[in-house]
């Protein structure tokens, strides 16, 4: 690691102010992506601002018919939460598929979506459920939050405080894991939301995306058969030594069908 200054943030306002004044400063939440990045000297922040000590950022509340999850809530807490398991079981299951137990003990939902790794799991749930991201400045609709590979709508000094997930009619997440990193080569979140059927895909492209053709077919008939022949173009999909674009395109269809089948 390069040298950096470390501080435990006392308040969100203080953290935001510091970010605004110091362009090279970074927030640290769970650190499960940031720390390995620092160890490999792939980043050189001047300061790390630790959000762990700020009151009120952690916790799961049932409200507005859905679930609100504080940004600093650890994946393991979402995975084991009785509230989430009752209201949105697919979300608890997804949290349980992130990384491994050590990663789940530390990693946070706020950190995950702010980083927007193309292979992260949470973005597919945020978009798939039509969730709302709450920040220190505003509320952002899920599908407007993720703007590109490792890019979000957040401003330089804007901090995610919570994510509000509405309760779906039914939902499921199917993940095809990279055998080495266990990140999503393809992850598909299917949900019947108040606004309609959503199919949100992570891992396959630069950023989470929806599949309107599948959503339309499922709206007509909500079963795996209905989307059997919908092929995703492999144009623009990720391709690496673990999975070609063509294979990912194929997997999107398979995982989508399995997610539909898994919906109660």
């Amino acid at each position: 690691m390069y040298e950096f200054n470390y501080q435990k943030a006392a308040s969100l306002e203080g953290a935001a102010k510091f970010l605004a004044a110091n362009e090279e400063a970074k927030l640290v939440a769970g650190g499960m992506t940031l720390i390995p990045t620092l160890k490999q000297r792939l980043a050189k922040p001047s300061d790390l601002i630790d959000l762990a000590t700020i009151d009120g950022l952690r916790g799961i509340k049932e409200e507005g018919g859905g679930v609100t999850i504080g940004a600093m809530t650890r994946h393991v807490e979402v995975q084991r939460s009785d509230v989430v398991k009752r209201v949105i079981p697919a979300l608890a299951a997804l949290a349980g598929m992130i990384g491994d137990p050590a990663v789940r003990n530390r990693g946070t939902i706020g950190g995950s979506i702010s980083n927007n790794d193309p292979a992260a799991d949470y973005p597919s749930a945020v978009v798939g459920l039509g969730a709302t991201v709450v920040t220190t400045k505003r509320e952002i609709a899920g599908e407007e939050f993720f703007t590109g590979m490792f890019e979000t709508a957040l401003g330089q000094d804007e901090i995610v405080t919570a994510v509000k997930f509405p309760k779906p009619g039914t939902a499921a997440y199917q993940k095809f894991k990279n055998p080495a990193s266990r990140y999503a080569i393809v992850g598909v979140f299917v949900a019947k939301t108040a606004g309609g059927i959503r199919v949100a895909v992570t891992g396959a492209g630069a950023c989470v995306f929806r599949v309107p053709e599948m959503e339309a077919a499922l709206t007509k008939s909500f079963n795996a058969e209905a989307i059997k022949d919908i092929a995703i173009p492999d144009d623009g999909l990720n391709s690496d030594i673990h999975a070609s674009a063509e294979y990912r395109a194929h997997l999107v269809n398979v995982m989508a069908r399995r997610a539909v089948a898994a919906c109660a």
């Binding site: 990279n178 055998p179 080495a180 990193s181 030594i241 673990h242």
Partner: peptide, 28 residues
């Protein structure tokens, strides 16, 4: 699982960490 992969064009070692080199684990 295990494959040590070099980029044919540049000779770069593409599998230089456990993010890319798949080690057998108990659940395999």
């Amino acid at each position: 699982l295990e494959a040590c992969v070099y980029d044919k064009a540049t000779g770069q070692l593409l599998t230089a960490s456990y993010n890319d080199y798949a080690m057998p684990r108990a659940d395999n």
